[in-house]
Amino acid sequence: MKQIAMIVGLASLAGTIVPPALVMVKMMPESTMRTMMLISAITWFVTAPVWMKAE
C-alpha cells in the first residue's frame, strides 16, 4: 500500500512540474496544464500522508 501510494505520490509531483515545462516549450496548452496541476495537487495530498514519514 505504502509503495503504491509512494509511486502515485511521486507521479503527482511529476504532474505538478512536467506540464508547466511542456507549456514552456509550447507542447501543452495552459488549460490542460492547470487541470493536470490541480489533479496532481489533490493526488499528492491524498497519497503523501500514507507513505511520507512525518519525521
Binding site: L13, P20, V23, V25, M37, A41, F45, A48
Partner: peptide, 24 residues
Amino acid sequence: AKVGHFAAPWMFLVFVACALVTLG
C-alpha cells in the same frame, strides 16, 4: 504542521511551475 510537512515539496514545485510558465 503535518500538512505543512507534506506540502513542502509540492509547494516548492508550484513556485518553479510559476516560473516555467512565465518563461514560456
